[in-house]
Amino acid sequence: MNKIVYFTLLFLILLFLQVFVLNNILFLGYVNPYLYIAFVFLFPLNKNRFLFLLLAFLLGLGLDIFSDSGGIHAFAILFIAYVRLFFIKLYFRKYEADYPFFDIHTESFGKVFNYVVTLTIIHHFILFTFANFSFQNITNVVLNTLFSSVFTLVLYFIATFIFTKKQ
């Protein structure tokens, strides 16, 4: 499939899935999955990062517009979009020359798991810290991060399992 069409569709699907379905789950009153960060995991590595950073920012901003949360989603997703390369270097040992051949679906599950878990927890922690916006209720921030991360990760791995099996 054409790459541009595929990632445009992915962008829109993740945005609307998050806004109209996942934001309304509120399991036990407050636990929500934030699956839209899958965009950061799935977007191909590129030497020129302007487009990727801009798209990640716009995805977060789009979500902020719909959920009236200021710019917290944009801040959190942009942060993991920027630090992504560092963790790719750390877990997969890929350098600039390897970027065009890198595909997250062909890597071993252990490495992908570490990579996705790290970025998800960083993202959720930033998100809930900003959503709380005070030094009170720190335990709530930590608990929210923990529960929502588990929820997001379960959904992400189920989704990748379903969508990559058919190859």
């Binding site: 950073l53 801009l54 920012f57 977060g60 901003l61 902020d64 517009i65 719909f66 959920s67 009236d68 949360s69 200021g70 710019g71 917290i72 944009a74 801040f75 942009l78 942060f79 920027y82 900003f130 916006f133």
Partner: peptide, 26 residues
């Protein structure tokens, strides 16, 4: 990255003060 983060922060702070967020709201 810093520029975009700065924009995101500015929007966040604007959103928290009543009636200031003109553009980024539902």
């Amino acid at each position: 990255f810093l520029l975009l983060q700065f924009i995101a922060l500015a929007i966040t702070f604007n959103n928290l003060s009543f009636q200031k967020s003109k553009f980024v709201n539902s």
